Structures are given as C-alpha cells and as structure tokens.
Simulated assay, not measured.
Amino acid sequence: MQDARFEDGREAPLNLGALDDEDLKVLSALAQDAIFPANEMKWLAKERRFALLVNRFRWEDLQAAERLGRRVERVQSLLVIDNVLKVASQGVERSDEDMILSILSVGFEPQEDGAGYVVLTLAGDGGIRLSVEALEVTLKDVTRPYLAPSKHTPSHDD
C-alpha cells in the first residue's frame, strides 16, 4: 500500500473540520492569508457560533498553478468556530467598513476539560480570541475559485 500524494487529489471545494490541535494546524495553513472586511464577522451568541466570510488564498492549488503557468486563485470560504462563549478582539474596528483584515494563523490554547481559546492572529498586530467550550472549527469553500486580483502569491518577507 502506498500513501496518497498531494498530486492525486481532485479539484473540489474544501470542507474541513478541526476537532483537535493537529486538525487545526492543517486548517490554519489553508486559512493563512485569507482576507476579509471587518464587517464580514458575525457572532451569533444564542447559537454560540462565530463566523467569517473570507477570501481565501488557494494554497492547495499553488503547485499546480506554477506548474501549468497559470495565475493563482482565491475562493470565498466560511470559517466557522462553534461552542463560542465569549469573543474579544484587539486592533479590529468592526465599524470601519473599509478595514480589511488578513489571517496569519488560527491556533488553540487549551484549558481544562477540553475548553480553551481559539486565537485568530491577524496581520498588523490584530487578533480575535474566542473562548470556547470545546474545539470545533470548520472551513468550507462557498464559491468557485477566481483569479487572485493581485496576481501574486502572498509573501511574508520583510
């Protein structure tokens, strides 16, 4: 038996879930450099759900795009965190409709009995910290991919 290779994957929308730290690392890598307007965040307190509509860079397609000489892509995705008890943010002005935020990482700080904090680290020293009863995060593509307007792969070189 041979392990699956990345190249063996099929072109399909992402629909990933993370229930532990290892799953979240994969989801975080795919959500890195997703951008969204500050007003595309929604906390549904009664449902204990926090959701973001993001424009995700398609990291999973980068090698194919380079190999085929085509432009890189983005796709609109829903990033949903469930079991949310409390939301706090720093460096985020939700009332500023022109504020565009960029996700650097999605992490988890465990506490007792499976509870903890989901932390969205944002570019520019911003962040969102969600107190959760249990880790449950999903990332789901909701549109077809489109050519990245910048035509460039995100870079973190200084």
Rank of each mutant, 00 (worst) to 15 (best):
A65G: 10
R129P: 01
G116L: 07
A65S: 15
N83C: 08
V84E: 02
A38E: 02
G91M: 02
I81E: 01
L52V: 06
T138Q: 07
V119Q: 07
V54S: 05
Q90L: 11
D113R: 06
D98E: 14
V75K: 01
K140M: 08
V87T: 02
S102H: 06
A45M: 13
G116I: 00
L85Y: 06
L14R: 11
E22I: 07
Q63S: 11
E133S: 11
T153Q: 12
E73C: 14
L53H: 02
A18V: 12
A18M: 06
A64Y: 09
A148G: 02
K42L: 15
Y146I: 15
L147Y: 06
N15R: 14
R144K: 13
D33I: 12
K86N: 08
K25E: 10
V137F: 04
V92C: 07
L53V: 13
G116W: 04
Y146V: 14
V132S: 02
A45E: 15
E11C: 14
E112Y: 00
V118K: 00
R56T: 10
R144H: 11
T143L: 04
A12G: 04
G9R: 14
P13T: 14
G126R: 01
E133K: 04
E7Q: 13
L122V: 09
P154S: 15
A148Y: 03
Q90P: 02
T153H: 09
A123Y: 04
A29M: 14
M41A: 09
L68E: 15
L27T: 13
F36W: 04
V80Q: 07
A34L: 05
A123P: 05
E73Q: 12
A51H: 00
R74A: 05
R67D: 09
L139W: 01
A38C: 08
L120H: 07
P154C: 12
R70H: 11
S105Q: 08
I81N: 00
L44T: 13
L139I: 10
A115E: 00
E22D: 15
A4H: 10
P149Q: 06
S77F: 01
D113A: 12
R70N: 10
A45G: 11
D8Q: 14
L14V: 05
W59I: 11
G107C: 12
E136C: 08
T143N: 04
A31Y: 00
R94H: 10
G9S: 14
I81K: 00
D21N: 09
E7I: 13
T121P: 10
D141C: 02
E47R: 08
K42R: 15
A134K: 09
Q111W: 01
L27Q: 12
S102M: 10
E60M: 03
Q32F: 06
K46E: 14
R67G: 03
I103W: 06
G107V: 00
